[in-house]
Design a protein around this nucleic acid. Structure first.
Lengths: 193, 193
DNA sequence: AAAAAAGGAACGATCATTCATTCATTTATT
DNA sequence: AATAAATGAATGAATGATCGTTCCTTTTTT
């Protein structure tokens, strides 16, 4: 199975290099030779795994969004009350950004790119819709303030964008206590009480 | 003075076109021919006003950050209490984003670009530092929750990033009442009480 | 030995930028 | 006032560099 392992290694090396460069320099600011050099593969090898630069960015975007969404949706406390659900949402959101800062920067740098295909857009919408649904149910129970769900999702998700830039530049450290204090502050904004 | 007027018009046409294209397609995704076509000037004309593509993006970034900062700092209620200062901050922040959505998208798409010079970085830091100072003083008075100022600034500034993307796509309308309700929600997060 | 994978030189396209030239306006000369 | 000379803003074809991609060759695997 050396063959398969190598194949996987090459493909993963390309995706890893692409993530690093796209998150630092953006899609158009990154060249295929840049990626092949960092991945330590020949320029032509990339095209054995991805039909084009666009196909590569879409494969990466879709994979990252799917992993992100799974992290939010897995172990979600479906039966529990709103505050507990919010706790799970907030902590898994912050947990993902702390553990995958580069991926989160990549997402927010590219989510409006015209090179993204339908599948990529759908994967982004899936995560956004999941958060919206949680907020929506909280509102139906009367636990979440009666505001446009889009605003509330932005209130929860938005702060992570500047935070992820600080994390990348090592100008921020997200300790457990820290994140919990921010959860409480955000809950104060979102709660109906 | 026809000459001067024409000069100003060309320069402004170039900056206007550059803002539109950079905010839609990013710096590297926009070509100089793209800009000259949209501005309705010859390709070489851009180089009469800006020495390079980098000089153009820096001129634009600096101008936009300076205008944004002036909007926040002008008429700021320096003597007043924290809640009133927060009201002014929040409303001028949202007011700017609603009136200059394209500019705000441009800022957040390019603020980490390696093509930005020292002057551009300083203009970004100036705005960020202004907000930080307001939060800091509120904390000293005991009115603002005792959290890292960077987190609090992100809590106030961050939500505007997804909101600006929704505004660009005409999927969000920011009415007066709406923004005021969000101000109150955000104040609940930020307030020490 | 045959087949698959990998490599990288080479290709046409397109990039940022340059520069010789045009042309409208101002200044100088009569 | 009329005309000629000078100016400099504007242009866009041309340039060298670099892009994404291809394809022939070499290496590795079976």
């Amino acid at each position: 199975m050396t063959e398969t392992i190598k194949k996987v290694n090459k493909k993963e090396a390309i995706l890893k290099a692409a993530l690093q460069l796209f998150s630092q320099r953006s899609f158009y600011g990154t060249t295929m030779p840049d990626i092949s050099t960092l991945a330590d593969v020949g320029a032509g090898t990339i095209y054995r795994y991805f039909t084009s630069k666009e196909a590569l960015v879409n494969a990466l975007f879709f994979r990252i969004m799917t992993e992100f969404d799974q992290r939010l949706e897995s172990d979600f406390p479906n039966g529990m009350d709103t505050r507990i659900q919010f706790h799970h949402l907030f902590q898994s959101l912050w947990g993902y950004v702390v553990d995958n800062t580069q991926a989160f920067v990549f997402i927010n740098l590219h989510d409006e790119g015209k090179y993204l295909d339908e599948r990529s857009h759908a994967s982004f919408d899936k995560l956004w819709n999941f958060i919206t649904t949680i907020i929506d149910k909280g509102q139906q129970r009367g636990d979440v303030v009666d505001l446009d769900p889009k605003s509330i999702v932005s209130l929860v998700y938005g702060p992570l964008i500047p935070i992820s830039k600080l994390l990348i530049n090592h100008k921020y450290t997200a300790s457990k206590d820290f994140v919990y204090a921010l959860e409480e502050a955000t809950w104060r904004a979102v709660s109906s009480k």
